[in-house]
Structure formats: C-alpha cells, structure tokens
C-alpha cells in the first residue's frame, strides 16, 4: 500500500471505484460542509475537495479535507499550482498528511482571471507534472525537492492527476497521460465526458500504450441539470465539449423534467463507460448537486460501495496509518 487510503484499497481490490466532488463554501459556515457531507457519506469511495475552483476564494481545500477526515469521510485533497510556490506546496502536503489526508489530486488550477481576484499575481512556480514528481519523492524517498537528506515522518499520499482526452493537441493527450504516470500518478480523473464514442477511441490508444495497467483511470462524468446549464458548460467551461445531440436532447424536454432527463443520460453513460476496457472507476462531478448524489449513485447501480477490510481510515484518528 502506498497510502492505505480507502480509494487505494478499493482500486487495489479490483472494485469499480466511485468518487465525487465537493465544493467548500465561501466563508467559514461549517454547517454547510457538514450538511453536504452527509449526502456523500457511504455513497462514494472518496470525495474530491476542490481548491478554490474557478479561482474564487473559498474555505481551503486542506481545511475542508481535514474536517471530512474528522467526519469519517475520505477526501481527495485537490491542490493547484496557481496559488503556491514549491515551499508552500511541500509544507501544505506535510500539513495534509499530518491531518490524516491520504489522497491528493495535483492540478494546474483554473486561471485567476476567471475568479473573484482578477488582479492577483499568479504563482505557477512548478507545474502539475512537477508537483506529482515532488509528492512521489516525498512519499517514496522521504525527501524534499533539492534536498538529499530525508525528513522525519511519512507522507502516505495516493497521488492523483487530471487528464483531458478531448482538448487540443488531441494527439498529445495520451502521451501527456503517460508522462503524468511516469511522474508518479497512481490514479487519473478525466475531464467530464459527454462523447462516449470519442472517449472509447481515446481509451483504446491508452490501453494500447499499456497505461491502464500502470494507473487507475477514473472516467469523469457530470450529470446535466438543465438545458441552460448544458449550453453554458459547452460554451464557457474550459476544455469542455458536449455533442450537439445531447444539447438538443436536454432542450427537448420541458424545464421541470430536465433534471430527470439529465440523470437518465448520466445512467446511460455510466453503463456505456463501464463496458470500456481499462476503466477502473468513475468520477462524478455533480456541481452544486451534492444532495442528489444518493439518488444518482443508486440509480446508476453504483451502490452499495465496498467496505474494505483492514481499513483504518474510519477510526477517525488522524495519526492512524
């Protein structure tokens, strides 16, 4: 075991893993965190905690993740390269480990020009590829960057990375994935998939390169809530591509039935994706729809979630390894 996290155990045991996403609140109202978390409990294997997504200031990913640990819900702490230099990144990884966080996702992060601090100075001291290498070095060699002397204590972190199979340069995306695996990624969560055929073709390339055997690939899915949301995402979300046929299908149902249609599409996609060779699980990005996670996971046939033997995570003791 690299980290002993629940997600790692589920994947190692060969189960089809399920993760979802959790957006921390703007502010310090922890009742929001706790209420949302209860919708997730037991319905997924781990939950990504976003790191000031869309570059809007929110309760930190590390603090929110630590609260989830205390609640007995396993977080995947997202960490962007946007706001931290290598000093802060390494320090925060120590902090996360000390707080019992065992999964992280290294990403570049949405550019600050999208958010509510447009005049900020960007950091990007290291990129996500370099962050993956750095965490791996911390975990496997107990060494920091530029230092040969090992540090005290361990960093048992299950390392995640993102992949977008559809964005240009499309040909390079599988090579880029291989690079992330070489850097040390244990699992991959993809950008939201709407064109399953296109994704299947990409996975064929990935499997031919043998990448599915070197890391766990979790296919990203976002249920569509309404025709408006679908159109908005297609037009505005970076790297997002939604086929016109789906936009038409969402627009074709009355407004009050749109969410239902979105969940139906989602369930169909889950079935199709489970058939694709090389897929180890699903990452559900139900944006501000945490309360629908119990229903969505149930209807998509993803419940019950496996309970792993020897899982020390739910003891609630952050020191527990």
């Amino acid at each position: 075991m690299k980290s002993g996290s629940n997600l790692e155990r589920v994947l190692k045991a060969g189960h089809f893993a399920v993760t979802t996403e959790f957006g921390p609140p703007k502010g310090t109202d922890l009742s929001i965190v706790k209420n949302k978390a209860e919708f997730i409990r037991g319905n997924v294997d781990a939950v990504n905690v976003t790191d000031c997504q869309t570059a809007v200031v929110r309760l930190s990913s590390i603090a929110t993740s630590a609260i989830l640990v205390q609640m007995g819900i396993e977080p995947v702490m997202q960490m962007t390269c946007r706001d931290r230099n290598r000093i802060a990144i390494q320090s925060d990884i120590f902090g996360a480990s000390a707080l019992g966080i065992k999964n992280m996702l290294a990403i570049s992060g949405d550019h600050h020009s999208f958010g509510n601090q447009k005049n900020a100075r960007k950091v990007y001291d290291i990129d996500s590829m370099q962050m993956i290498s750095l965490v791996k070095r911390m975990r496997d060699e107990q060494k920091m960057l530029s230092e040969d002397k090992p540090f005290q204590g361990e960093v048992p972190m299950f390392i995640g990375a993102a992949a977008n199979p559809f964005a240009p340069p499309v040909e390079f995306r599988a090579m880029h994935l291989r690079k992330k695996i070489e850097a040390g990624a244990d699992f991959i969560q993809t950008q939201s998939i709407y064109d399953v055929d296109k994704f299947r073709q990409w996975m064929k390339i990935v499997c031919d390169m043998g990448l599915d055997r070197q890391c766990a690939i979790l296919a990203g899915l976002t249920p569509l809530k309404s025709a408006g949301m679908a159109r908005y995402m297609a037009d505005n979300v970076p790297g997002m591509q939604i086929p016109e046929s789906l936009l038409t299908r969402m627009a074709g149902v009355p407004k009050e039935r749109a969410a239902e249609e979105g969940i139906r599409i989602f369930c169909e996609q889950v079935e199709q994706i489970r058939e694709i060779p090389g897929i180890a699980g699903l990452h559900i990005m139900a944006i501000e729809w945490e309360h629908r996670i119990p229903e969505i996971t149930e209807r998509a046939g993803l419940l019950p979630r496996p309970v792993m033997q020897g899982n020390d995570f739910f003891s609630g003791d952050p020191q527990c390894r």
Binding site: S113, Y124, M129, P169, K179, G239
Partner: peptide, 29 residues
C-alpha cells in the same frame, strides 16, 4: 498563461485557443 513546462493544461479550447482568451492561442498546442 500558466507558464507550464510539461505540456498543456486541460483548459485548451476546441479551436486550439487558451482557456483565458479565445483570441490567445494555447502555447502548448
């Protein structure tokens, strides 16, 4: 826009532009 050294981020638009501006080409593309 993110000064990346190892390839593109996931935000490249379908027309090969940067997530920050559709007028700016994605450098990594």
């Amino acid at each position: 826009s993110k000064s990346l050294f190892n390839g593109p981020c996931g935000g490249t638009n379908i027309n090969g532009s940067c997530e920050v501006s559709r007028e700016t080409p994605c450098a990594w593309n």
